[in-house]
Design a protein around this nucleic acid. Sequence first.
DNA 1: CGCCCTATTGATCCTCCTCAAAGGGGGTGG
DNA 2: CCACCCCCTTTGAGGAGGATCAATAGGGCG
Lengths: 290, 290
Amino acid sequence: MEPLGNTVPNGNRTCAFRVDTMGVFIEEEAVQQDNGNHREAMSHVVRKLSARFPLNPVDANAVLDVPASLRWHEPGTHLVREGEEPRDYCSMVVSGLALRQKTTSSGQRQIISIHVCGDFLDAQHLFLERADHTVEALTRLRVVEFSRTSLRAVALSRPNVGRALWTEALSEASIFREWVLNVGARKAPARVAHLLCEIALRFEGAGLGSRDAFHIPMSQEQIGDAVGLTPVHVNRTLKGLSADGLIERDGRSIRIRNWERLQTAADFNPLYLHLQETTRDQFTPLKAGA
Amino acid sequence: MEPLGNTVPNGNRTCAFRVDTMGVFIEEEAVQQDNGNHREAMSHVVRKLSARFPLNPVDANAVLDVPASLRWHEPGTHLVREGEEPRDYCSMVVSGLALRQKTTSSGQRQIISIHVCGDFLDAQHLFLERADHTVEALTRLRVVEFSRTSLRAVALSRPNVGRALWTEALSEASIFREWVLNVGARKAPARVAHLLCEIALRFEGAGLGSRDAFHIPMSQEQIGDAVGLTPVHVNRTLKGLSADGLIERDGRSIRIRNWERLQTAADFNPLYLHLQETTRDQFTPLKAGA
DNA sequence: CGCCCTATTGATCCTCCTCAAAGGGGGTGG
DNA sequence: CCACCCCCTTTGAGGAGGATCAATAGGGCG
C-alpha cells in the first residue's frame, strides 16, 4: 500500500498536518515565536467556534482577547490528570492527537475518546472544579492554551460564543454515549470496526487523511484500551476484518476496502457525531496524496 | 428486611416521593391543575438551577417566564426518540425515574444513564438538532416540560443560568465517561456493584432512600442492559454480592451491608458524580421511615 | 549490532453467554 | 376465593468468545 498523503491542503481547516511524520514537523524555536502573540493563538479557537456557530466581530474580538499561547506537548504528556485541582488554563488541539482516559484501581485503562485538531481538551472541565479523567498527548501535540476563567466569562457573556461552545460540548457528550454502547453492547469485531469508522470520519474532518485511507498512531494495546479488548484479541480481530476484505492494513495505516460492509459490520451510524451541526464542510473527502 | 421508607421529607429537595408504591401516589386530576400555572412548574427548575449556581431574582424570573407545564408519563413512554426531529420542549424530572438508552441494529439495548428528580432529560439536546439516543420513563414519571428555545435563550443571555446549566450538563457527561469505564474495563461483579453504588448516592441525593437502603425499580434484564451483561449473569452476580455479605436483597430492594467493601469491590470513587459542585446537601443521609 | 517495544501466532483457561426449565408473585377473571 | 396467566427471578448444563500465558518475529533507534 502506498504511503498516505503528505501535507494536507489547509483550506478552511484549522490545521495543516503531515500524516506520516508526526512529531518532527516543526522545530522547537517555533514555540517561542508563537508565544509572543496570544491573539494569533486564539484565532484558532475563533475559527473553530465560528464553524460551530457564526460569531460576529465583537464576539470574535472577545475570544481573541482571552490570554493564550501555543504550546507543544510530547507524546505521553498528561495535560489533565484525574483528581487534580483545576488549573487556570484549558487547551484546544491545533495539531496532533490526544486522548481521554480513566483507570480502574487495578490499573486497567479505558480510553474514553480520541481528539483531533479543533477539539477542546477540557471544555469538559470548563465549569467543573475537579478533573474526573486524564487527558494525554497521543502524538506530539500542539495546542492553544488559554485562560479557563477568561473563556468561561466570554462563553457566559456572549451568547454566540456560548452557543458554539455548547454545541461542541454536547457533541462530545454524544460521542461518550456511543462509546458506552460500543463497549457495552457490541462484539469484538463490531467494536473495532466501529472505532475505525469513527476515526475515518473524524480524521477526514480534521484533514488527517481521507475516509478511505488514514493512519492510526495507536498501538494495538491502545486500540484495545479504547474498545475494551486485550491487545491480542485486537490483533486477531483486525486480522479478521482484513480477511473479510473490509480493510487492508500496512503497519498502522488503514485502507478501507469496503466502506458499506465495514459500516454494517460496525453497526455504525454517524448521527452521533453531530457533524452536520456545523457550518464546516466535514464530509468532503480529501484527495490524499498517492 | 423491613420495607423502605414511605414518604420522604421534602426539605430543600425538589420532590417528595413514595418509594414502595411508585406509580400510584397522585391521581390524574392533579395533572390538569398543574398545567394551569407555568411559573409554578418552572419553579422546580429554578430550585434545581439555584442548587448548581446561585441565581439572583432577575435570573429566577427569566427562568420562571419560560413557557412550561407539568406532565405525567407512563412507564415505558419514550420522551425522546433516537434520530427524531427536535421538538420545542425539554423536560426535567420532578418525580419518578427515567433512563437514556441506545440500541444496536441487532436489537441489543444499552442503558446509558439513569435519572432521578432534578435531572434534565434533554439538556443534552438543548443545542443539538437531532436526538442521538432515546429517553424513556422507567417508572411513572412526572416532569416539568418547558420550551426548549426559551430556556436556550435564557441560558445564553443570563450568565448565572448559563453557568448552572453548564455545570449540570458537564456533570452528566462525566457520568457517561465513568460508564464507558465501567462497561469497558470492569468485570461483572464490579460492574454491578458500581451501578449499585451510583444508584445509592444518587437516590439518596434525590430523597429516594438512604445510601444504605433503597429500591431499584429495574428488572434484572434492565440492570443487565445498564452494565453490559445478560440477565442470567446479573442474577448470579447479585447472588454473589449477597453471598459475600456486601448487600442484602429483598425483591428489588437493596440494603447495603458493608459500604466500604462494596465500594472497594466496585472500584467506586464518587468523584465523577461531581456532587460537591453544588450548594445542595447531597450527602446527608435521610432517615427513611420504617 | 543489540535493545526495546510492538505485532503476531499458538495453546489453554475462564468468564460470561445461551438454551432450557422450574419456581414465585401479583393481577385478573370466573 | 380460586384458577390462571404473565412476567420476572432463579437454577442448571453446555458452549463460546475473549482472556491469559508464552514464545517468536519484526522494526526503529542508540
